[in-house]
Design a binder for these strands. Structure first.
Lengths: 224, 224
DNA sequence: TGACAGCCTAATGTATACAATGACAATCGG
DNA sequence: CCGATTGTCATTGTATACATTAGGCTGTCA
């Protein structure tokens, strides 16, 4: 895709995920254009994508703000993610090739190594975790499921969630991936679906526990 | 939203749904800009939205074509729609207010009148059908479910499907809406969910039967 | 005759200027 | 003193010109 609008997209996205742009912060096209060193045109395209991914919200009059996720919103998103990913797992169990299973095993192994290193490497975990889920999506052979999950629900929350995983959470996630692998090797759709539901549900509770009480911590300034 | 880009969006969308722009047709920004009487800027915005709704596809180099739906694609979409709408129905059964039930009854009644008139009025059916499903979505109180269904799956296919409904199909759909209403009045999530799955599934088969053999009929010119 | 290369055309990406619209503030009237 | 109305300013919407790139066509060479 286009160079400038992609760069702008990534930059803005990182600003949001890193907290540099806190929840509720006002987003002006002009200001961002200057920060990103491009004109407003690619900024506008980037904002469209970010709006589609629900990282920013727009008022009725098209003013943009960093989306502010309540715990209810997050639960809703996990519900949706569970619904879609479990369906993907079910489809994948019927269709997955042996080479795809091999790739799953590779990522599974890498995740294990990242966790059980002397100092657990969360970044590595996140990366291979995404690839692991990516292979399942690919094996589900549903462009529309893939599209939806990838663009709307997938990445932002995965990041924030896994960032806060405890050692136990990491181990548990790894074990559930092992369970998924077994279900795929047996080509058992119902099993794969059930494990995936549980896997995502667990991720939600890990997120929720990590955020008890700290309802959106990064909002020092008020309404701007 | 903005005037020009909205008009452009609707115009292009209608061109696609009416078949004026056949499946696989190349879409040039410049040409559309001229046809719609606006500049390329709002056209680009409209194309983004249409791409998000999967009505157009883009090559790796951003050239746009009218999406070409195989029967498998359509089945996938109905699978997704069933997944999401049945979940919406389940949530709605737990949350729906009496006034929302009243609104459902109003649309249900209007649909009945449209069907059992001397000459069944499909347009009226489609309109009230959309409102009926809209109220359920609203009652599901999930902004994200609503967003997804409304933007990605909902409207284009509903149109094409209901357009071809036989009298029996219309009656069946009406009866199932009655069943849904009963489930809501009983506030029975499992029941509502099951009826909705069946309802959407039936819609798929109605679509499939109406299209046996005529694999995308509107493609006189080849690859353009 | 077929294939490859280079140029040419057409379409998209980006920047920028201008228009329109909404928000905010200050002042005036009740 | 409070509220409303108007004017100014900020921000977004649109148009257009220019840059860049992909894809096709033609000509030449093997």
């Amino acid at each position: 895709m286009s160079r400038a609008s992609d760069r702008a997209y990534e930059l803005i996205r990182d600003m949001i995920l890193s907290g540099e742009l806190p929840s509720g912060a006002k987003i002006g096209e002009e200001a961002l254009a200057e920060q990103c060193g491009v004109s407003r045109t690619p900024i506008r395209e980037a904002l469209s994508r970010l709006e589609a991914e629900l990282l920013i919200r727009r008022t009725d009059t098209q003013r943009s703000f960093v989306a502010d996720w309540s715990l209810d919103d997050v639960e809703e998103m996990f519900e949706l993610r569970g619904l879609l990913e479990s369906r993907a797992a079910r489809r994948a169990a019927k269709r997955i090739s042996w080479s795809q299973i091999e790739r799953l095993k590779t990522h599974h192994k890498a995740i294990g190594e990242a966790i059980y290193a002397e100092t657990p490497d969360t970044q590595q975990f996140i990366e291979h975790n995404q690839h692991f889920h990516g292979v399942i999506l690919e094996a589900s052979a549903s462009a529309q499921l893939t599209n939806m999950l990838a663009r709307i629900v997938e990445r932002p929350i995965v990041h924030r969630t896994a960032q806060n995983y405890s050692f136990d959470d990491l181990k548990r996630s790894h074990r559930q991936h092992g369970e998924l692998l077994a279900a795929f090797e047996q080509r058992d759709p119902a099993w794969a679906e059930a494990v995936m539901i549980s896997h995502i549900r667990r991720a939600f509770h890990a997120y929720a526990n990590a955020h008890v009480g700290q309802r959106i911590p990064e909002v020092p300034q008020a309404a701007e």
